[in-house]
């Protein structure tokens, strides 16, 4: 849009009558939003960056003193923090991997005409519309070894899902897969329905095997949308808090966001927790960057 176009106002408009230009109107819409962002986003972000170099504790009436990179040094040399990061990585890989496989698989199944298709798709979308806290509490009941329906249905007897330190993280990841596969499914479905039909027809004429059709036509054309799903889910899984927090208290399920919460709001180590939050932010940005680079390459093809 050029400024010349912006300057033209409908002479009948009220704004014109008051002598307002389009630029003035644009600014009136944008400036409050930017101010809002600065006050509630940018300012706290920079403020907490400042805190991350101090020994500040919000619970103590003492001024913060500058300690340089000490917080970062302490965090990065703390084996417990590394354990939290390992747990988080494991959780991200299992749950996002599971969601991609299940979500894309279901989308492939749904990508054809059959009766009540719309209704079935809507039903499948329900899990992701629920509140995390409710899902966590319900799955805790489902996993109960004495009377939970999962052990009953699978004939596992009194198998401990959440009390077993080796199993708990997978149990939480399964719940996350159940909840968020529909999201991947939805994006995949959008991608699948956009694949031109004539490509499949050409492949059929050439007698291409269905595996060949899948790997050479379907997957490359859907992959940009799948990558977007992957980016969103990885970011979400990396900072997930609610499900592991509600479902299990095991150290083997203490993802980094739970550690951060405890550090900031139970132990009130404000400076240290700001530093940890920044480390998390950097990790998320790094992962997202890798994905976006890859996404751009896929798009160029």
């Amino acid at each position: 849009m050029t400024t010349a176009a912006l300057d033209r106002l409908d002479p009948q408009a009220r704004a014109a009558a008051r002598g307002w230009s389009d630029i003035k109107i644009r600014n009136m819409f944008i400036i409050p939003t930017i101010l809002f962002l600065i006050v509630f986003n940018i300012f706290p972000l920079l403020y907490s960056l400042g805190y991350s170099f101090t020994d500040f504790r919000a619970s103590v009436n003492a001024p913060a003193s500058f300690i340089g990179l000490e917080n970062y040094r302490r965090l990065l040399s703390d084996p417990n923090i590394w354990r939290n990061f390992t747990v988080t990585a494991k959780y991200v890989i299992v749950s996002v991997g599971g969601q991609m496989i299940v979500g894309f698989g279901v989308a492939l199944l749904l990508n054809r005409a059959f009766p009540f298709k719309g209704f079935v798709t809507t039903l499948l979308l329900l899990p992701m519309m629920m509140s995390m806290a409710v899902v966590g509490l319900f799955w805790k009941l489902l996993y109960d070894p004495s009377w939970g329906i999962i052990n009953y249905a699978l004939g596992l007897g009194r198998f401990d899902w959440l009390s077993n330190p080796d199993m708990a993280l997978y149990a939480v990841a399964i719940t996350d897969i159940w909840m968020w596969s529909p999201f991947v499914m939805l994006l995949s479905l959008a991608g699948l329905s956009a694949v031109p039909k004539h490509l499949y027809e050409a492949a059929a004429i050439d007698r291409a095997s269905s595996w060949y059709t899948f790997t050479r036509i379907t997957l490359p054309l859907v992959s940009p949308l799948l990558l977007i799903a992957l980016i969103f889910r990885t970011m979400e899984a990396f900072k997930s808090f609610d499900l592991p927090f509600i479902m299990s208290g095991q150290p083997t399920t203490e993802v980094i966001a739970i550690r951060l919460y405890k550090m900031a709001f139970q132990e009130w180590q404000t400076g240290l927790s700001c530093a940890l939050a920044y480390i998390m932010l950097i990790v998320v940005i790094a992962i997202t960057n890798v994905y976006i680079k890859y996404l751009n390459r896929v798009k160029e093809r």
Binding site: S59, P251, Q266, E267
Partner: peptide, 23 residues
Amino acid sequence: VPEYAELLSQMNNRVYPYVVGGQ
């Protein structure tokens, strides 16, 4: 002490895996 919550966390981290996980 004012840092009791840190002490609690540390004790949970050390004791829980042994009591419940047998580690």
